[in-house]
């Protein structure tokens, strides 16, 4: 129930999946919202602090999830066509990769001048000891571009899950909701 089996995901994997999904949607919405706030908006500063804090916690959870995934069984894909398996693998791989790049680029924006990032004013994550030219602008553009790309990949991922659930009527979505 806790661990993955060959048929289904365990509770840890399921919780990590949905916890991250929720944070990612939250961060995307918050990100779009906060950059439009006026200077005198009471949320002008705290929205960004919150975005950074959640983002860094997400990075921590991301590492935990990868570690957990590495020492777990991977449930067998349900799709029987080879291209579907490949598509699923590719999508999952991209989700991990793009998410990592978003988190790294976000970190590089805020640390471009050597400042550290505060996580809920509890911990402070230091900047790298070096920076590249126009780091905050380049990292900012990549962060924005990849955030939208991630949403697109997430849409493909979610549509595929819904297709499995409603059209193919298999266990794909169910086994990510509770261990089967």
């Amino acid at each position: 129930m806790i661990r993955n089996t060959i048929e289904s995901y365990g509770w840890i994997s399921i919780l990590l999946h949905w916890l991250m999904a929720l944070s990612i949607f939250g961060l995307f919405g918050l990100g779009l919202y906060m950059v439009e706030l006026g200077y005198y908006d009471p949320w002008y500063r705290s929205s960004m602090d919150l975005h950074k804090s959640i983002g860094l916690v997400l990075a921590f959870v991301y590492v935990l999830r990868l570690l957990w995934k590495l020492q777990q069984e991977c449930p067998e894909p349900i799709a029987d066509k080879a291209w579907q398996r490949l598509a699923a693998q590719l999508t999952h791989g991209l989700l991990y990769l793009v998410l990592l790049a978003i988190m790294v680029s976000g970190y590089l924006i805020s640390t471009a001048d050597g400042r550290s990032i505060e996580i809920f004013a509890l911990f402070s994550v230091p900047a790298l000891p070096f920076a590249f030219e126009q780091q905050e602008d380049i990292a900012g553009y990549i962060h924005w571009l990849l955030a939208w790309s991630l949403m697109f990949i997430v849409a493909v991922h979610a549509l595929a899950a819904l297709q499995h659930h409603f059209l193919l009527k298999d266990n794909t979505l169910k086994r990510m909701l509770r261990p089967q």
């Binding site: 960004m48 924006i109 805020s110 640390t111 471009a112 001048d113 400042r115 126009q134 780091q135 905050e136 602008d137 900012g140």
Partner: peptide, 16 residues
């Protein structure tokens, strides 16, 4: 103008 520097990367990004 890209060389604006107010000693704060996030602010400079905003200013650019």
């Amino acid at each position: 103008t890209t060389s604006i520097d107010s000693n704060h990367a996030e602010r400079d990004k905003h200013l650019r």
